[in-house]
Simulated scan of single mutants.
Amino acid sequence: MADLRVTYDRQANAAYVYFSDPGVNVARCYPCDPVAVDGMINLDFDDQGCLVGIEVLDASSKLPRHLLSAAERIDHEAT
């Protein structure tokens, strides 16, 4: 299995799951229905239509705790 990069900003309570290199240009963002998922999840696609990442808002209620604990911290508390 390929390495998966996950970043988490605790202050914003937002996580990002990368399926490609972070430098890949996001050409299109598809927001999932906030009512149906009880939150906001955005699917990011490149210009070829490939899924490059998923942004999860209110991440602490949507993602497993172990995943957020292991995620790369990008907030001001990261040291």
Rank of each mutant, 00 (worst) to 15 (best):
T7G: 03
M40D: 13
Y16R: 10
E77S: 14
Y16I: 04
D9V: 10
D38Y: 09
L68P: 04
I54R: 05
A14D: 00
L43R: 10
D47N: 12
C50P: 00
A36N: 06
G23D: 11
L4S: 03
V52Q: 02
A59H: 04
V26S: 11
C50F: 09
T7E: 03
D46Y: 02
E55D: 13
D46E: 01
E72I: 15
K62M: 12
L51W: 08
R5V: 02
R28P: 02
S20Q: 07
K62I: 00
V6C: 04
P22R: 12
S69Y: 02
A71Q: 03
L4Y: 04
V52W: 05
T79H: 14
E55P: 04
G53P: 01
R28T: 14
V35T: 12
R65P: 00
V17A: 03
P34L: 03
T79L: 09
P64T: 08
H76R: 14
D47T: 07
L68K: 05
V56T: 01
P31W: 10
D38N: 14
T79Q: 08
D33N: 15
F19Y: 15
S60F: 01
V52M: 01
Y8F: 14
S20C: 11
D33I: 09
I54N: 05
R28Y: 14
S69Q: 13
E72Q: 15
D75G: 07
M40G: 08
L51T: 09
D46W: 09
Y18I: 00
E72M: 07
A36K: 15
P31S: 07
D33E: 12
L63H: 09
L4F: 03
G53T: 05
Q11K: 10
I74G: 05
